[in-house]
Design a protein around this nucleic acid. Structure first.
Ligand code: MN
Ligand code: MN
Ligand code: MN
Ligand code: MN
Lengths: 219, 219
DNA sequence: AATATTATTTAGACAAATCTAAATAATTTT
DNA sequence: AAAATTATTTAGATTTGTCTAAATAATATT
């Protein structure tokens, strides 16, 4: 199936928004893609025609098996390019999403597979998100919780859920990255802020909002 | 200036066809871009509006200084990606043009410059074409002639002018690549074919058409 | 149940990039 | 210089992806 860049972006966004079997809404998709609901309705008709989504008027959107497969290929390319930019070209994790958003549309299985191999077949991207393999399979992520819900004291950072430049740059400033080990020193009930301590660093208090977006597991 | 992919492809094609001050013709450009003359006329009006080309009805097309600068940036990206694909991902020289045709449209100076640095700031691409630097300057190529015009006997291959998959695959099969050293053993007047000899190889006769497209200089 | 609000779709428009067919200009041949 | 040929442009359509404004459906509130 030959998809336009716009179609690919829609398929990927639907994949991102579709948790389990919940149908994706017109408005939700419009917001995610920074476009208008009317445009989403138009595109939904096209993607249904191409059998990438199930769609009935007023009933929301879900990917077909074919659509899911397509989405996983795009996600694979996106995350591999992010790895390339960070690992090989020394970009910082907050800079790579935008570039990968374009690079992901170069459709060549050979290129994708060679790139993966060149990078050592990585299984997670620079934000801790899993990378589908050539068959669309992802390693099921090891159990992780958001930092605000963690009960163990000694933790390691495994992913970041909000990947806005603002949060990623904040974490850079505080020296928090994937693999960073930390201990929870205190919970403050007043605003649910959390005091953490990293090795060789003074303790640090982070807001609930930040804590919610840092994924961790016990070390 | 924000250009579409189509506009970038036009600017690059105009740059390629414009030798010195000769204006590029509507038909020539249509042929190069595998499109119709009517489409070229339409685009010429747009590119003139954007001040990337000089264009008057029936008078042909030439790049402005701004257009030339833009073209050189695209060419730079194209050739750097070709280097990446060959040097890092082990693609063969006949496979990379098509992929670079897409990768060249990811517009990021930072990406381009980092890529260049990562590759060791190469000055020629896998086909022997010079790579513009960040300022659009190209090393003036060392003097070279096509193999059918060479008079010295001991030669080294410096570039290939016809970059069709057919010719590049043929040269692969015969073991001829950039840097290959060879001697001219004989010229056959009948069909202007040339017998050449590479070290540790049996002699080999190549057609005039092939010889015309191999650039060499004395070793 | 009626009303208000929100979500979604439809109708109609527009810009970009392309095309075909017809018109016109430039060039070459006779 | 007239006729024939070739090159280029124009006119009018089409496809893709988007938009705004209006209509309709679904949901929430009173
Ligand atoms: Mn994208
Ligand atoms: Mn990512
Ligand atoms: Mn291109
Ligand atoms: Mn090249």
């Amino acid at each position: 199936m030959n998809l336009s860049i716009a179609e690919e972006n829609y398929v990927k966004a639907i994949y991102k928004l579709q948790e389990g079997d919940t149908a994706v809404t017109t408005n939700g998709l419009a917001y995610e893609l920074d476009t208008k609901p009317a445009s989403v309705t138009d595109m939904a008709k096209k993607l249904k025609e191409k059998q990438l989504i199930d769609y009935e008027k007023y009933k929301g959107i879900t990917l077909t098996a074919e659509g899911r497969k397509t989405a996983l290929q795009i996600v694979r390319r996106h995350r591999l390019w992010e790895c390339f930019l960070v690992d090989k070209l020394a970009f910082s994790w907050e800079e790579v999403h935008e570039l990968a958003e374009e690079l992901e549309h170069v459709r060549s299985e050979k290129l994708t597979d060679r790139l993966s191999e060149y990078l050592g077949n990585p299984t997670v991207d620079p934000h801790g998100d899993p990378i589908p393999d050539a068959h669309g399979r992802m390693a099921k992520p090891r159990p992780q919780t958001s930092l605000d819900q963690a009960n163990a004291k000694r933790l390691v950072v495994t992913a970041v859920t909000d990947q806005s430049v603002a949060l990623l740059a904040f974490l850079n400033a505080k020296g928090i990255r994937l693999g960073t080990q930390l201990e929870i020193v205190a919970h403050y009930e007043y605003d649910n802020s959390i005091e953490i301590k990293m090795k060789h660093q003074p303790a640090l208090t982070i807001s609930e909002q930040v804590a919610k977006n840092i994924m961790v597991r016990p070390v």
